[in-house]
């Protein structure tokens, strides 16, 4: 793709992501009401001026819940990606740099874990550990680090044979110094792209866990959990289903745009080929 389109995607994605971050931070200001306050008299009402997204089966304001849900989803997305990114990058670095038996063991582990469909493993982990935010984060982080490890390992193996590494080593630099100061910066670009796309992916999976009832539990305003709650009222009150899902999609779309754009910008391929 074009670097220009890449730039546009980055700007567009960044705007969405920053807006969402703004919503998350200023949720108490934006939300018209308390996301937990029930009002059984005013339950399942359709979107109107007072309740822009309507109310749910317990009469809670869906707009407020969606706004507060931003906090939960972004927290999970960022924290899980940070943890799995750190584990993955560290594993990839040492596997790629030191090679040998260590590399063999680590990469076999990655192979084995990648043999499980990620969400299935996360589901089982979350189910066994029990529901709740910390366990959801743990489960998703444990199944999400392998991709980073593979990519970083590949990049390290390509970088470590370059002359400048030998040069730095000849100057007496230690392994860790070389790894952190010289190799890490060179493999960072793909990691940044992966992590950006990863946040979107994690948010999607976290919502799926909550939707299945194995993630963040009600009454916490989480989008997936809200969808699960709204399912039973699909016939009578579809707005319970529409708005939380829309929130998930917009959020994930923002991160996907940003990640795609970053990939295009960080890895520009020449587009017009002129024969010579």
């Amino acid at each position: 793709m074009h670097t220009e389109t890449g730039n546009k995607a980055v700007v567009g994605g960044l705007i969405v992501v920053l807006l969402l971050a703004g919503v998350a931070v200023s949720a108490p200001l934006l939300a018209p009401g308390d996301p937990g306050r029930q009002n059984l008299v005013l339950n399942l009402i359709k979107p109107c001026w007072e309740y822009p997204f309507g109310t749910d089966e317990l009469g809670r304001c869906i707009f407020s819940r969606v706004v507060y849900g931003t906090r939960v989803s972004l927290t999970i997305g960022v924290v899980v990606t940070a943890i799995s990114g750190l584990i993955g990058v560290f594993t990839g670095l040492i596997a790629g740099y030191f090679g040998g038996l260590l590399d063999e063991i680590l990469m076999r582990t990655v192979d084995v874990l990648l043999a499980f469909p990620g969400l299935v493993l996360a589901l089982v982990l979350a189910g066994l550990l029990g529901p709740g935010l910390p366990n959801v984060i743990l489960a998703l982080a444990l199944v999400g680090w392998m991709g980073y490890a593979r990519v970083v390992r590949g990049a390290v193996m390509a970088v470590k044979v370059k002359e400048f590494v030998a040069g730095v080593r000849a100057l007496g630099a230690g392994d860790w110094y070389i790894l952190v100061r010289h190799i890490l910066p060179n493999v960072l670009a793909p990691v940044i792209v992966m992590a950006t796309l990863g946040i979107g992916h994690v948010i999607l999976n976290a919502a799926a866990l909550s939707f299945l009832g194995l993630g963040v539990q009600p009454p916490t305003p989480e989008w997936g959990a809200m969808l699960n709650g709204g399912r039973s009222y699909l016939r009578t009150a579809p707005h319970l289903t529409v708005f939380p899902g829309l929130a998930i999609m917009v959020t994930v779309l923002g991160f996907n745009f940003l990640g795609d754009g970053l990939r295009d910008v960080l890895d520009p391929r020449s587009q017009a080929k002129i024969p010579d």
């Binding site: 074009h2 670097t3 220009e4 587009q271 017009a272 002129i274």
Partner: peptide, 11 residues
């Protein structure tokens, strides 16, 4: 002539 992001290339 080629139209490229860099401009017209008169090959």
């Amino acid at each position: 002539t080629f139209y490229t992001p860099g401009g017209l290339v008169r090959a």
